[in-house]
Structure formats: C-alpha cells, structure tokens
Amino acid sequence: MALLDWINDATGSVVKGEGVTLRHPRASDYEAWATLRQKSHAYLQPWEPSWPEDDLTRAAFKRRLSIYARELDAGNAWPFFIFADADQGLVGAITLSNVRRGVAESGTLGYWIGQPFAGRGHATAAVRAVVGHAFDDLKLHRVEAACVPTNVASRRVLEKSGFVLEGHARAYLKINGAWADHLLFGAVNDGVGRGG
C-alpha cells in the first residue's frame, strides 16, 4: 500500500535547481509526460533505447511509477520530473539510479529534456541539482554518466556540470535498437571538479 501512497503523494522529495524544481513523478503527471514525450519522439529517439510499443499509454506509465516507487523505497534510485520555475511546466526528467552503497557509494545519472525546451539550460540546472542532492543529502562519493559520442548537447551538459571525461566504452548500451559506444563521465565528491 505504501507504493500507491507514494505514487499519489502530493508532497514527496523536492530538489531545487537554478530555474527548475525537481520532484518525484506522480499519476497526475501522465498527460503532461505523454504529450511531451510524443512531441519529442524524433528528437529523443537517437539517444534512447527503443521505446516499447505501449510506452506512452497510461498503463505503461502506471507500471513505470510502480518501478520508480520500488526503487526509491529500496534506496536504489531517485527519479525526478523537471519543472521550469517560470510556469511550473514539465520539461523533462532525470534519474539517479544504480545506487551502490558500501565501498562504492555511487550512482548513475540519466536525463532527457523535451524538444520544445532543449537548449535553455534546464538539463544543466537539473544535473547540478541532482549531483548536489547526491553528494550533500544522500552522501554519495561518486556520480557517473554516459552519453553517445555524437550527442554533443548531452556531453556539454555534463562538462558544464563538473563531470570529467574518464573513458570510452565500446558497445556500452543498446540505443535505438543497436549497441552504441558511449563516453564515460564521472563526478567525485571531493570538492574538485564540481560545476558551479
């Protein structure tokens, strides 16, 4: 029952960034999310895994929320939707996932911004805010991210947010139906290399 409470909870965690507010997704976000994803499909598809046929349906969104709730409950992931402070409209999403405790104290960052809002600084603000949350509140030591080498915009977001290029991984993730090389980036909570 706690999972359903979380899905419908109007409070939940909120993280503030420069010009953006991040909060956990809820059932009432479905229409805005589905509309933005549909409008941005051609723009996002080169950088994402292939979308399931039912990806934009309400049933698929509910499954997504259930997965988010379980991962958050277990402390494995922190999913957020990104809202522009100017009008409180949904502009994208960001997730800190694969959180590993113990000797690693690290997590992996992934994000997307809808095409109508690209190039406005929302991704950079959200990445900086989540990295700050990861380091200051969650007490992680390291945050990792990866992007396809040709995704210049995503690489720029990571560099502006204090991530350092650490390597090149061959056939790292299956993107748009094919295994794709990725550039590997990292940010470490040592006071060095944090974007500002």
Rank of each mutant, 00 (worst) to 15 (best):
M1F: 11
L4M: 03
D5C: 05
N8K: 06
N8V: 01
T11N: 10
S13W: 02
E18M: 06
E18S: 15
E18A: 15
V20D: 05
T21Q: 11
R23P: 00
S28L: 10
A32M: 08
W33K: 02
Q38H: 12
K39G: 09
S40K: 08
A42L: 09
Y43I: 04
E48Q: 13
P49H: 04
D54H: 07
D55P: 00
D55S: 13
L56I: 08
T57R: 10
T57K: 08
A59K: 07
F61V: 05
K62E: 15
I67D: 09
D73L: 12
N76C: 05
W78N: 03
P79K: 07
D85N: 14
L90G: 01
I94S: 03
T95D: 06
L96R: 01
L96S: 00
R100K: 13
R101L: 08
G102N: 14
E105C: 10
S106F: 03
G107V: 00
I113V: 15
I113L: 02
P116F: 09
P116V: 05
F117D: 06
F117R: 08
G119I: 11
T124S: 08
T124V: 12
A125P: 07
A126I: 03
V127I: 13
R128N: 12
R128W: 02
F135P: 09
D136G: 12
D137T: 14
D137N: 12
R142N: 10
A145N: 08
P149T: 07
N151K: 05
N151D: 14
N151V: 14
A153N: 06
R155G: 14
R156G: 06
L158H: 11
E159P: 02
K160A: 04
K160M: 02
S161Q: 00
S161L: 09
F163C: 05
V164K: 14
H168N: 11
H168L: 13
H168F: 15
R170P: 03
A171I: 01
W179L: 12
H182Q: 13
G186A: 13
N189D: 10
V192S: 12
G196M: 06
